[in-house]
């Protein structure tokens, strides 16, 4: 079955794509929604243009769709993008990296149901620490590109998800209820290398924006 992956370049959508491939599915295209709204309810925003470099590293076509990111408009833009993917790449299903967000998952379910294609959420309800450990075990090289919760700060930008990271997150989770996989928006991440990539990416230039407990790293040059 040919599938399209809703792809943000972060750990969840990349890991979901890898699971699909591991189970024998063909990833026919990636779909990235570029939201002008930095606080979009639906889409992960930082470093989204770098997804085109990731798609090249995977050798998979990428559809980029721009949206103003207003609540229900962005859903129409997403629906358009999925219809385009269905026509152009003959996809029969969508893969997402949704873990906990019923808001995201149910809206994508509705769109797929309306279009008449399958919807796959292989990380659905997955234990958050298990997810981080699976990333490390399966040789995903992931860095943090955004933080948005106390006591996370600028120092976390650029940190790699490794065993030390998991230890620190476990502590923060028990003290401050930080969601360890960051789907609540506490973290944004970017995948530099994984079994789907033909080569490792190098971040050559970046800019950090933010204050206090709200920071993001824009990757300006990735190759």
């Amino acid at each position: 079955m040919k599938l399209g992956v809703l792809f943000s370049g972060g750990k969840d959508s990349t890991y979901a794509a890898w699971l699909a491939k591991k189970e024998g599915y063909e990833i026919a295209c990636l779909i990235t929604i570029q939201s002008e709204n930095k606080d979009s309810f639906m889409f992960h925003t930082p470093s989204i243009l770098a997804t085109s470099v990731q798609a090249r590293a995977m050798g998979i076509s990428l559809i980029i769709v721009k949206t103003k990111g207003e609540k229900e408009n962005e859903l129409e833009d997403l629906e358009e993008a999925i219809i385009t993917a269905k026509k152009k790449y003959k996809i029969e299903g969508i893969v997402t990296g949704a873990v906990e967000s019923v808001y995201q998952a149910s809206r994508i379910q509705k769109i797929c149901n309306k279009i008449g294609i399958e919807c796959f959420n292989p990380l659905w309800q997955k234990d958050q620490i298990e997810l981080l450990e699976d990333l490390i075990k399966n040789k995903f090289e992931v860095v943090i590109t955004g933080v948005a919760a106390f006591p996370l700060d600028k120092k976390w930008l650029g940190r790699k998800i490794d065993n030390k990271f998991v230890e620190d997150i476990k502590k923060l989770n028990s003290e401050y209820k930080i969601n360890p996989a960051g789907e609540g928006g506490e973290f944004e991440s970017f995948v530099l290398n994984c079994p789907l990539f033909k080569r490792r990416l190098i971040v050559k230039d970046w800019k950090d924006y933010g204050e206090k407990n709200n920071w993001r790293r824009e990757l300006e040059d990735v190759e």
Binding site: A20, E23, F120, K126
Partner: peptide, 14 residues
């Protein structure tokens, strides 16, 4: 579909 195991079965196993 094999890939649906992760979404509909694994959460129950967990």
């Amino acid at each position: 579909e094999r890939l649906h195991y992760y979404e509909f079965v694994k959460p129950i196993e967990d």
